[in-house]
């Protein structure tokens, strides 16, 4: 086994050899015990180094960076919300005349608009977020994430705060109410996002005086 073979053995670990080189190396490790030992040692080092860096990718800090990166994305709107908006705001489909007629017929629904330029969250504060922490008990099969997100959204709407940070067990979630979709008497619907573990989900949250409902997608 010469130095060139050692380099090829290292590259063999990375699957970066040509078919011809792979054949040569597989023959070599079949015949030369020193080459096989060398390869095994390299494998061990490689596994340890990979797990050292992969562990860091699963760390709290890496996840926090992931959440930060998600927050920079210009999110595409969830199809469910789009359909709902089309239903509530039929201008796009039927034109202004028909929507005028619709609103004339169904009464005085004050809708919160489908344009991001409209600021229907003017009453909401974007300052300090609500911070809630929920314990996750071992052995509890049921995932209560949705329940706690809903509970926090209730609090956010009551306190007129658009941002919240919750922790369920060790898992952090960032919640943002982005838009008010409907506001009629004591019945309000909001759209927003929940970011956790490098993924963003869209929610639709509706609240009346006595109850509330959450659709998370």
């Amino acid at each position: 086994m010469n130095d060139q073979d050692k380099i090829l053995l290292s590259s063999y670990l990375d699957n970066s050899l040509s078919a011809e080189e792979t054949k040569h190396i597989e023959e070599l490790i079949g015949q030369d015990e020193a080459a096989l030992n060398y390869l095994n040692n390299l494998k061990e080092i490689n596994n340890r180094v990979n797990s050292y860096f992969e562990d860091s990718l699963n760390s709290k800090e890496a996840k926090e960076f992931g959440v930060f990166m998600d927050s920079l994305a210009e999110e595409k709107e969830n199809p469910l919300i789009q359909s709902l908006k089309k239903f509530i705001f039929p201008q796009a489909i039927l034109g202004y005349a028909l929507s005028g007629l619709l609103f004339f017929n169904i009464g005085s629904i004050q809708y919160a608009g489908n344009s991001s330029e409209d600021n229907f969250l003017a009453e909401f504060s974007y300052g300090d977020p609500i911070v809630n922490s929920y314990l996750k008990y071992r052995g509890l099969d049921q995932d209560e994430t949705d329940k706690y997100i809903k509970e926090t959204l209730d609090q956010m709407v009551d306190e007129k705060i658009a941002l919240a940070e919750i922790t369920y067990g060790s898992q952090p979630y960032s919640i943002e109410i982005k838009e008010q979709l409907l506001n009629k008497n004591n019945f309000d619907c909001y759209e927003g996002s929940v970011i956790s573990n490098q993924t963003a989900k869209t929610f639709l949250f509706c609240k009346s005086q006595d109850s509330s409902s959450l659709i998370l997608n």
Binding site: F53, S56, L57, S59, K60, E61, A62, E64, F65, G66, F68, M69, D70, A73, Q198
Partner: peptide, 27 residues
């Protein structure tokens, strides 16, 4: 984005050798 997230974080880990510093540097 996920691919970039991993690469930037790992590169910052390589530079700082410290997870908290890597997160701050990556951001």
């Amino acid at each position: 984005r996920e691919d970039l997230t991993q690469k930037v974080f790992l590169r910052c880990m390589a530079i700082t050798r410290n997870r908290e510093e890597a997160r701050d540097l990556a951001q």
